[in-house]
Design a binder for these strands. Structure first.
Length: 115
RNA sequence: AGGGGUGAGCGCGUGAUCGCUCCAGCCGAAUAUGCUGGAGAGGAAAGUCCGAACACCGCAGGACACAGUGGUUCGUAACGCGAACUUUGGGCAACCAAAGGAAAGUGCCACAGAAAACAUACCGCCGAUGGGGUGCACGCACCCACAGGCAAGGUUGAAAAGGCGAGGUAAGAGCUCACCGCUCUCAUGGUGACAUGAGAGGCAGGGUAAACCCCACUGGGUGCAAGACCAAAUAGGGAAGCGCCACCGGGCUGUCCGUCCGAGCUUCCGGGUAGGUUGCAUGAGGUGUCGGGUGACCGGCAUCCCAGUCAAAUGAUCAUGGUUCGUCUCUGACGAAAACAGAAUUCGGCUUAUAACUCACCCCUUUUU
RNA sequence: UGGGGCGUCGUCAAGCGGUAAGACACAAGGUUUUGAUCCUUGCAUUCGGGGGUUCGAAUCCCUCCGCCCCAG
C-alpha cells in the first residue's frame, strides 16, 4: 500500500456502517466539527465525512470535505488506528486552508491522548 | 473628450511533488496488486420555469370538463423559445417595451359626485311656444320662472356620450359645414398582421378579460429512485416424492380398529428484500470550410471522440510567469486582490448570479481641423 | 428527482382588489403610600425583495430570496 494513499476501501460508504459508528462511537469535539471513532476488525482505519447542508453551498461543502480528506491522508498516524472515523462538520466553521484544518484537528487529538 | 445604445468574447497560464476516478497497454487465474501512458466541471454545471428524447403504464371513436398559450409570417424534433415584419406607446436619437375579443352574456368600479351606465339633470342657460300678471297706442312691450325646452358652461373623480373653429338658435345641440378622429363599404399593394387611396354614414359609444367568460390552437399519465437483468440471509408460497411403524393435531356419529389430511423429512420451482450489474456517455454532437436564406436557421464536404461519480472522483502543497490595485527609495521592489459558482439519464431554450478584462457597430453633446 | 405549503408590528396572527383588525409585549399617562391588577393613549411606512396589470395591489400575474414538509 502507498504511504499516503486513500483508496475506496478506506472510505466509509454504507448507511449501516455510519449508523454503527454514530450509536457506539467515542466523540471528540473541536471548533465547528466533531470526530467520532469506533474500533473495527479490519487491518486499516476508514474515514467518513459528513457536512450539513447549512454549512454552505455545494462548492463550500465540497471544499471542506477535500480539506478533511487531505489532512487525514497526510497525517494518518495521528488518528486512532484500526477504527472507523467519522468527522461531522457543523455550520459556523471558518477554516479555509489545510494548515488551519491540521492545526485544529491536531490540537483536539493531542488533548484526547493526554487524557 | 464625455455620456449613452446594441451585440459578442474571455472566465488566469506553466512546471514539480503527494493523492482520487475512469480508459488503454504490460505482469497476472483475476474486474486484486503493481508499472507505463491518456482523459477528467460550467457559462451558467444553478433555479427547476417550459419543451423534447428515452422508458414503463393506459388507450375503439366523439363530446364535455380542466390546464396552458395568444399581433402576423417563418425557423425548429418540439416549445411558453428564436428571427423578420406589423401596429401602439416611451426616448432628442441609437434603440427599447407591449400585443386576440368589451358590438355574445355576467360581475365589479370604494370615496367623491347630479349621474359610474336602458345615462341622468344638482348648480345652471333659455323661457321662442303655451300659461299667469302689469301697462297701454290692442297686438305689442315688460315682468314671473308655472308648464316646458336645452346639455354649451360649472362641480367630483382614474374615468362623464367625439375634438376645434364657423354658421345656426329663445337658449342650445353633428342641427349644418370645413379639418381631424371614428365606423362601414369598395379598390390597390402585401403569403399575412396591415398599409395607402376613394366613397358613404353623421357618431354608433366608459373602463376592467394578469375578473368570470368567448374564440383559435396545444395537451393521456408517471418519471432513470423510469425500466431491464443477477440474486444472499430470514420468513412464507406452490409442485412432486417419502411418511404415517412410533410421537403431535384434525375429519369420517360416541369409543376402538381402519383410513384420509395436516405436521415432519427430501428434492425442485416461482415471486422477491439487502446488495450488485445495466440503463450510462456517438449525440436533433463539436470544430473547420463551402453554399442557400434579409435573418432565426438549413444543407454539402472534411475532421475529432471530449467527465461518468453514487455518504458523491475532478484535490492539496510549492515554485514561477502574466493581469489589476496600493505603497515606496518609481527602467524597479514590496504587499494585496481575482467573481458567481460544482456534472448526477441526456439534449433545446428561458430565468437568475457573476470580479477583472477585451472587441465590433451605432446614437447624442462639446471641442479642434 | 418530483410534488406541496408558508413569509403581514418584537411574538402569535386576521384581512385576500378600495383607510393594514385583534391579542400579548413595549412606551407614556392615570388609579395606588409603593407595586401587581385595571383604565386611557401611542406604536406597521420595503405586508420577504424586484418588475408588471389596474384609477388603485398585502390581495391578481411574472420572477428571485428564505424557511418548512411529503414521496421513493
Amino acid at each position: 500500500m502507498k504511504q499516503f494513499g486513500l483508496p475506496k476501501c478506506c472510505v466509509l460508504r454504507k448507511n449501516g456502517e455510519f449508523k454503527r459508528v454514530y450509536q457506539a462511537g467515542r466523540r471528540l469535539y473541536g471548533e465547528g466539527f466533531a470526530i467520532i471513532y469506533l474500533a473495527n476488525n479490519l487491518p486499516q482505519s476508514r474515514l467518513g465525512i459528513s457536512v450539513q447542508r447549512k454549512v454552505g453551498n455545494a462548492v463550500r461543502r465540497n471544499r471542506i470535505k477535500r480539506l478533511v480528506r487531505e489532512v487525514f491522508r497526510l497525517h494518518r498516524a495521528e488518528f486512532p488506528q484500526q477504527a472507523d472515523i467519522i468527522i461531522t462538520v457543523r455550520p459556523g466553521i471558518t477554516i479555509n486552508t489545510t494548515a488551519d484544518m491540521y492545526a485544529a484537528m491536531g490540537s483536539v487529538l493531542l488533548l484526547s491522548e493526554k487524557r
